[in-house]
Design a protein around this nucleic acid. Structure first.
Lengths: 210, 210
DNA sequence: GACGCTATTGCGCAAATGTCCAATAAGCCC
DNA sequence: GGGCTTATTGGACATTTGCGCAATAGCGTC
C-alpha cells in the first residue's frame, strides 16, 4: 500500500469504515472488513485508532454530521420559515434513506454500551432538534406558525420523523416511504397550525434529487 | 440439573434469556450466558431451540407481548375512548421503562440481521398501532375526537411515543421521562383536536404504580 | 547513495461464539 | 429391580473477533 501522510490515511480509514458500516451496519463492522475495504492490512487501522470504539464513533460522526450539514445548508436557502421547513423535510427524507437510518438504529441501540458513540449520537440529535426549533421560532415571530412551546414541538416533529422512519427501515412493509413523507409533514402541519398541504414537497426545491 | 418437562424447561429457558437480554442487550446475549443464568449446560439450550435467532425472537416476544397484553387489559377498563386513550398512555409509560425500551431499540436495530426477530417486532408494532387506531375510531364515531385519517394518526401517535422514548433511553438527559409523558400526550391532543390537559395522567387510574 | 524515521505489513494470540455430539443420568413403565 | 426413553451434560470444533508486535519498506535528509 502506498505510504500516505497521517492525516490523509486517517481520513481514508474513516471513509472506508463508513462504507463498511453502511453496507453491514455498525454492529457487524469489523477491523478486517475495514482493512479489506482499504485494501490494506488490519494492523494499519490500529496504528491510527486506539480502539474499535473510537473508529466507529468517529465514522458515525462523520456520516451523520455530513447529513446534518447538508440539511442545514439546504434549509438556509429557504425563503422564510415555511419554505425552510419544507426544505427540511425534503432533505431529511433523503438523509434518512435506508442506509443512513439503519446507522441511526444501530447507534441508538449501541449508545447504552458505547460511551463515545452515545455522546456523538446525543449531540447530533440535539442539533437536529435545534434546527427545527429555530425555524419554528422564526415562524411564530413573523406570525406564519402557531406554537406555544417550540422546544416541545421541535422534539415532537423530530421524534415523529425518527419514529416513522424507524418503522420503514426496520420492518419494511409496515409503513412505506411515501407514507413517512406524507404523514410526517402532515403531523408538522397539525402541530404548527398550518393548512393541509403547506409542507408538501416543493417541486422545485434546489438540490432536489431524482 | 433437575429434569423438567419440556414445557417447563422451555419456559425456564425463555425466562432466563429474557433476564440476560435485559441485563446485556440483545446483541450481547450469548448461549453461554443464558445457560449460566439457568445454571445449566449450553447444550441444553440447543436441545430446545434450533438456533439463536429463534431463542431471541421468542424471548423478545414474551417480554414485549406481555407489555402489549397489559396495556390492552388496562385500556379495556377505560370508560369511553378518552379515558381509554388516557389509560393507554399511563400503561405505555410503564411498559416503556428503561429495560423494556432498550429491548425495543435492540430489536429494531437487530431486525435487519435476524429475520425471526424482525417478524416478531413488526407484528407487535402493528398490534400497538391497531390498538390506538381502534380507540381513535371509537372516539371519532361518538364525536369526542376529531380525525380524518385514523390509520395515519395512530401511526403518528405511536411513532411519536417511540421517538421520544428513544431519546430518553438512548441519551438520558436530552429528554426526561416527565417530558416524554407530557409532550407525547399533548401531541396526541393536538392530533385529535382535544383540549389541552384532556389526556393528562389520570390520578386514580386502576393499576397505577408509584 | 547511505541513513533514519515511521508508515505499513502480516501473522500470531487469546478470548468468545454458535453449533453439534457422544456420553451420562434421571424418571417412568413393566 | 430392569430396561427404555429422553432430558441433560460437558466438551470439541471451526470460526471470528480485537489487538499487539517484530519485521519490512517507503520517503525525506544529509
Amino acid at each position: 500500500m502506498a505510504r500516505m501522510t497521517p492525516d490523509d490515511r486517517r481520513a481514508a480509514i474513516i471513509a472506508a469504515t463508513l462504507a463498511v458500516m453502511q453496507r453491514q451496519g455498525i454492529a457487524a463492522t469489523t477491523v478486517r472488513d475495514v482493512a479489506a475495504e482499504l485494501d490494506a492490512s488490519s494492523g494499519l487501522i490500529h496504528h491510527y485508532m486506539t480502539s474499535m470504539d473510537e473508529l466507529i464513533a468517529e465514522a458515525f460522526e462523520r456520516a451523520a454530521g455530513a447529513d446534518l450539514l447538508a440539511t442545514r445548508a439546504l434549509v438556509e436557502q429557504g425563503q422564510g420559515p415555511l419554505e425552510q421547513l419544507r426544505f427540511f423535510f425534503d432533505s431529511y427524507s433523503r438523509a434518512g434513506d435506508d442506509f443512513g437510518m439503519q446507522l441511526w438504529l444501530d447507534a441508538w441501540a449501541e449508545a447504552a454500551r458505547r460511551p463515545e458513540l452515545r455522546q456523538t449520537s446525543q449531540r447530533l440529535n440535539q442539533a437536529w432538534q435545534q434546527l427545527i426549533r429555530s425555524i419554528i421560532e422564526d415562524g411564530v415571530r413573523i406570525g406564519v406558525m402557531n406554537c406555544t412551546d417550540p422546544v416541545a414541538a421541535a422534539w415532537r416533529i423530530l421524534s415523529l420523523l425518527d419514529g416513522l422512519h424507524l418503522q420503514e427501515v426496520a420492518h419494511g412493509d409496515s409503513v412505506t416511504s411515501q407514507q413517512v413523507t406524507k404523514w410526517s409533514r402532515h403531523g408538522a402541519e397539525i402541530e404548527l397550525g398550518l393548512a393541509e398541504g403547506t409542507l408538501a414537497s416543493h417541486p422545485t426545491a434546489p438540490g432536489e434529487l431524482t
